[in-house]
Design a protein around this nucleic acid. Sequence first.
DNA 1: ATAATAGTGTCTGTGAGACAGTATTCT
DNA 2: AGAATACTGTCTCACAGACACTATTAT
Lengths: 243, 243
Amino acid sequence: MVTDSFIGRIQASKTQGDGDKTLATYETPLVTVDIVILTVEGGKLKVLLIQRKQPPYQHMWAIPGGFIRTGETLEDAAERQLYEETNVKNIYLEQLYSFGAPERDPRARVITVAYYALISADRLSIQANANAEDVRWFDTAELPELAFDHRHIVHLAWQRLKEQLKDSNISFQLLPEKFTLTELQRVYELILQKKLDKRNFRKKILSLGIVIETDETKMEGYHRPAQLYAFKERQKKVFMYEL
Amino acid sequence: MVTDSFIGRIQASKTQGDGDKTLATYETPLVTVDIVILTVEGGKLKVLLIQRKQPPYQHMWAIPGGFIRTGETLEDAAERQLYEETNVKNIYLEQLYSFGAPERDPRARVITVAYYALISADRLSIQANANAEDVRWFDTAELPELAFDHRHIVHLAWQRLKEQLKDSNISFQLLPEKFTLTELQRVYELILQKKLDKRNFRKKILSLGIVIETDETKMEGYHRPAQLYAFKERQKKVFMYEL
DNA sequence: ATAATAGTGTCTGTGAGACAGTATTCT
DNA sequence: AGAATACTGTCTCACAGACACTATTAT
């Protein structure tokens, strides 16, 4: 993790442009981009964490992140780190919130712009081996102790995901291209932490016209196979009730 | 405006903690907090702008902002600047988005955490005189050319306000303590830029149980006076359809 | 009486949510 | 036959949205 490199405080003293303001001391903060990478796998909503090698918070788990490079937008930086960790491109990525509590990093003033990313489990095969030893997926509902304010950040990402689930088709970012309606329902149930009625759920999804039936089916176990669906558009705004 | 003080670029060259990453050059960006301050006054949704005295964008209008001080949280910094500009405390304030395009400030790499604030027009009396010459309220629908990416930021704030109007009672932040239902409806219409049906609007607001009738009325012109209402709670989540 | 805004009620249609039984595939 | 999951339809109730007339206060 890039933030592991220790950076001393840089103090800058400046006069201000406006006459009626007093001379003041500004800290030049460091800016990082941290990413909450979420996926659904094995019936759990999981988040990618990295084990820290250096202090502070040595050996604790943290979300991936790092500094912004010259010429990079914030989103570029997030995309780059996302790629470094997952080896996958074109991942759904969205800015979450910026955190700047003065003591959130004991070494220096570090402001982080948090992003969150959603990736479907079927795109993760490549990653698993890379620096596998200190990178792992954790059940978002059972997090270990996290470094810095990362627990808060992960929870905020989950919160945001819940909200977005209710008024967009964002859930499709977490599923393979073809999926059964039961699989889709499981994603909703996992994120919302709540059982949904199968008939109402299917009625709603189908009436929204956001999925299209494929001619394939999926067998799983010794029972009736399920119809596979694909989705029509990304980012369509919809409304889900039955919160 | 604090950002007027010119700050040179500070370059920092650092090695990273992880072995598999290349040596890279990081810019130490500057971090500001900018605020979109909105109010409803004279039948317009207005935003507070400040005329810049120094280049770049000299004489152009910009939203207020400035650097974060040592020991301040991002929100502290926003609150401080909000108070400096309006002379009013306890204003509704919420983080909007962070902007970090490399060339958004021609002088240096400046990342800004944008906030937006809502204030009711009746709390603005104190302000008007302060540094009145270069501080003015502008109709959000008819902005002058703005410095930096501030036009984009203002539009995003408006956008966010529209969304929040539909699922929270945030509109009350823009009204005096006691108000008529017609005044409340005007706020909705202004922000959503759309006429609403008076009967449906009142039915909805009253059924939500978020306002309470007071025993006062308000006369305005030669016609039937209107009942004044107050709201019960702040921050309650509600749902407004009729988008 | 006139002007001007405040205030009010009904109907229709959509859709959220509750609810249980049949269909299909395998061993 | 049995196990296991896929799949489907009806009813009720709430409420969004369309729509027009009466009430009150002043000049």
